[in-house]
Each structure stands twice: as structure tokens, then as C-alpha cells.
Design a protein around this nucleic acid. Structure first.
Lengths: 258, 258
DNA sequence: TTATCAATCCGTCAAATTAACGGAATAAAA
DNA sequence: TTTTATTCCGTTAATTTGACGGATTGATAA
């Protein structure tokens, strides 16, 4: 994947191409088997789990950087990806230990003063992706990955549990106001599908009829007059997202009137 | 205030003390005469208006940096200050033009390669302060300040109108869920005072009785059994914030049940 | 062909919340 | 004691939310 030469070049010269002191760390939620999971990578040297991450190119808009980094790790383009917070309080992340391991055989000279040792702020994004479409590629610092159910997240490196928690809170808060489901469901989906998705994300039973009413009232989805033929039972109607309406819902919906 | 020597040292050596590429830019809302205003500074050289800003010290947590920067410009400590977004898309802010003016007499040599010329991401916070308690101090780059009503914000430097807009939207969204008013009102305040504050911030009439009921239901304020003696009229009761309840309200209140 | 099964679909009523509304009480000054 | 400006409060209608179960459909099995 990445040759040792590339790695050494990255350590020595990465700061010429990337902004130092700032990384982008997406919390990637995936959905499969009615479970909500997040993608974590296993660090070389540190032998612990952490979020995928990457650096911003010197001339690259940060939203573009976030999309690029997501694509580099997952292969996915054009998915919902939203910034939610920038961490830089207790979070003095560096790659020191990790790099010592990786570059052991080279001696430690090359590490002296590397940009990767410096304090790094973390601009965090979250994303929801279709688990089955993801093709994970590890990066220089990592060698394995795993999708962890959100109730089985281990203690993470770099104090990233806080990041994950805030991502989840934000996801749930915005669920009715951002086109969050649109990467997880097929273009046309059934009511039970989206219903189950929302129940999973909120970790809560939602009455089916009330759920439908709410989604229709907010204008988030619209009913088509097609049905899908599922195996053995009654054919469910298909629905589609109405993306244009989401942000409206946000503004109208949360600023409590009067 | 700042000597020319200090400025030159800051230009040449600031990157040893501060993280380059990242600034903190608080949108400081002030309230007076029933108007909502923001504090803008006038840039030397560029002759335009922009947000106050500052850099993060190399070992300083960012929330602490934000508070320090706010204090440096306004003299205020311990006020409500909240991060809301990190801008870095179209926002390639540098101090190049400004610095050329300021350091004119020194020749331009010192500017070569200054850390201040590099691209800077902006971690943005907003704050609400009591206009009358603020003691504005300009910084190296600025020489004047003004409180602009939010409906009379000029075109800002560094594409900061976007920042201000997002700050205002966020402020309004969170008004019922964060202890936002607590820096703007005295410890004990009357119902008409807080009512008028909320009307001003939301730019909207709020029915007085319904407003009271809502604040009480959310547990944001509590009624004391003291009254204040105002000049000529009926004595209003006093109220106090119940800060502990705000964040509760956030979690319980926005995640729409069922 | 019919019965069975598993899943989807839908409507009503009660409870809670929100929105609209005006008149009585108070404190000082005239 | 009257006037004036201001605070205080309660009720009703409309809307939204929450709870609830029975009828329909599409295929498979008898």
C-alpha cells in the first residue's frame, strides 16, 4: 500500500504539502444489520484504536480535505459529511510513539523535529455511510480496521472517546433536520427501512404511524406510487428523500416560536 | 499600547510562541438600548472592519485561548463563550496587506516569510457580553473599534460576514438551551428585562405570558420573592437563572421524542 | 383453490403543548 | 384621590404529540 520510502518522505517533508498542527478526523458511522457502528483503525506501535484522520493540503479548502480523507479511507464520494467541533483542549495528539515503532529500523534520526510530533488540533466531522459499500484502506500509521458497535467502543487513543460521544450526540440532534439517512438507504426505500434506521440511530422505539406522520409533516420524505416486491409478504410502498426540505426544517423547526 | 518593537518581534518570532495557521475569532455580541450589536475592529492598512482575533499559544488549550483573547480585547472574564464552527474553505486569510502598511518605515525585509502571511483557519466562537462593561483594547493590527447593530454590519474583511451570520443563527438556535443571557443581565433581573432581551435577540415579538410560562417550564429561570423598586410604577418581581437546568433542557428538549 | 402467515398500511382519540387574547393591580406623581 | 405607566396573571382555542389495534396484502403451504 504505502512504501517505507513514502512514509519517510511524509515524515520529513509532509509539512511542505500539508498544514501542520491541524488534522481532520471523521467519525464514520456505518449501518448494517440494524446496528449503528463506527469505523476505527488500529495504530501501529501504540496498538490501540483511533479514528481515521488526515491532514489538510496547504491550498485545500477544509471541506474538500474532509471529503478527500473520507474517500481515501473508505472509497466513498459525495456522502453526507458534516463538521461538528474542533477539539484542542486536552487533546495534545502527536504521532511520536507510533512513529518510533514504525521507523525503528531506520534509526531515529529522521524523526528529529518532525512536524508530526507537534501538537495537533482536531477538526472533527461525522459521516453516515453504507457499511457494505465501504472499502477500507489503512494509512501510514495504521494496519487494521474494525467496525465497532456504538455500545462497544473501546477506550481510544488521543482521548478520542470525547470526539465520538459528541459526534453521536450531534447526529441524534440533527437527525430530523439534515439529510442524514440519504447515504444509508437506496435511492428509493420503504417505510420500514427508514423507520428501522431511525430507531437504530436513536436507540429508541418509534411508533410507526407517528413516525410516518412526522416525516411527512417535516417534508423529509415523499411517498411514490411504486411498490417494491419483497419476498413473501405485502408489497411496501417506496419513498424518496426530499433533500431540499431538510435545512428548511432546521430553521423553522428548532427556533421555538413565540 | 503596543510598541513597534513588540510588533516586529511578533511578526518575526510569534510562531515560536503561537501555533501558526490557526486563529480564534470570537463574534462578540453586546446588548444595549434594546439592541443587539457586535464588536468589530478597524484594520490598519486595509481600512476595513473585521472580527477581533488572536492566536493560540503552543501549549494552551483552545478554550483557554478563546477566553484569553476575549479578555484581551474586552477586559471580560468568565463570560459565556462557545465554539460554533471552524472556517477554512474560501477563507485564506493572511495579514499581508495589513502588515505592509504597518511596517512601511522598516522596509519590507522583516516580512519575508513571516508566519502571519500563511493561510489561517479560523476557529470561531461567539459570546454575549454586557456592552457597558466592555473596555475595548485594539491589537497590533487594528486601531479603532465600533459596535455595529446586527442589521448594519458592513462588508467585512476576510470573508467574515459568513462567520457573523453563522454565529447569529447559532445564537438564536441555542437561546433556550444555553445560559446565554446570564452575562447580559444582572444577577437578579425582572421579567420585562429578560423578555425584552429575548425579543431583541430573536428579532421577534414574544407574548409575555407565554414567554414566562416557557421559561418556567424549561426551568431556565426561577422567581424570587423579592421585588425591585423601579421609578414610578408597579414593582416587578425579580428572577434568577437556574444554570444547571440549561443543558438538561438541551438534551431533553431537542431530540424530538417518538 | 383456499387457508395461513408475515409483513405493511392506516385512522382515531386523549393528552400535552402552543398561540392568542385583555383586564385587574400596583407605585408613584400630579 | 386621580392619573399614568407599568407589571401581573388566567382562560380558551388550535395544534401537535403520543398511544393504540384492526384491516389489507402477497406469497407460500395445505
Amino acid at each position: 500500500m504505502h512504501s517505507q520510502e513514502e512514509l519517510l518522505d511524509f515524515i520529513k517533508n509532509g509539512h511542505k504539502q500539508y498544514l501542520p498542527h491541524v488534522s481532520i478526523d471523521p467519525v464514520i458511522f456505518g449501518y448494517s444489520d440494524q446496528k449503528l457502528k463506527i469505523l476505527l483503525l488500529k495504530w501501529k506501535g501504540l496498538e490501540g484504536w483511533g479514528l481515521p484522520g488526515g491532514y489538510i493540503k496547504r491550498e485545500e479548502p477544509i471541506s474538500q480535505a474532509a471529503n478527500r480523507i473520507l474517500e481515501e479511507r473508505t472509497g466513498l464520494k459525495n456522502v453526507f459529511l458534516q463538521q461538528f467541533y474542533t477539539f484542542g483542549d486536552s487533546h495534545y495528539r502527536t504521532h511520536e510513539q507510533s512513529l518510533k515503532e514504525i521507523t525503528q529500523e531506520q534509526g531515529e534520526d529522521i524523526l528529529k523535529g518532525s512536524w508530526l510530533f507537534e501538537r495537533t488540533l482536531s477538526i472533527s466531522y461525522f459521516s453516515l455511510v453504507d457499511h457494505s459499500k465501504v472499502n477500507v484502506t489503512t494509512d501510514f500509521f495504521t494496519y487494521d480496521y474494525h467496525w465497532f458497535g456504538i455500545d462497544e467502543i473501546p477506550e481510544l487513543l488521543f482521548e478520542q472517546n470525547e470526539v465520538v460521544d459528541k459526534a453521536l450526540t450531534t447526529l441524534r440532534l440533527q437527525l430530523y433536520h439534515q439529510p442524514i439517512g440519504s447515504n444509508l438507504l437506496p435511492e428509493k426505500f420503504t417505510l420500514p427501512e427508514i423507520h428501522s434506521l431511525y430507531e437504530t440511530i436513536l436507540d429508541k422505539k418509534l411508533d410507526q404511524r407517528n413516525f410516518l406522520r412526522k416525516m411527512m409533516t417535516l417534508g423529509i420524505i415523499k411517498k411514490l406510487d411504486e411498490q417494491r416486491s419483497i419476498g413473501a409478504h405485502r408489497s411496501p410502498f417506496l419513498y424518496q428523500f426530499e433533500k431540499e426540505n431538510y435545512e428548511e426544517a432546521l430553521k423553522q423547526g428548532i427556533i421555538h416560536a413565540n
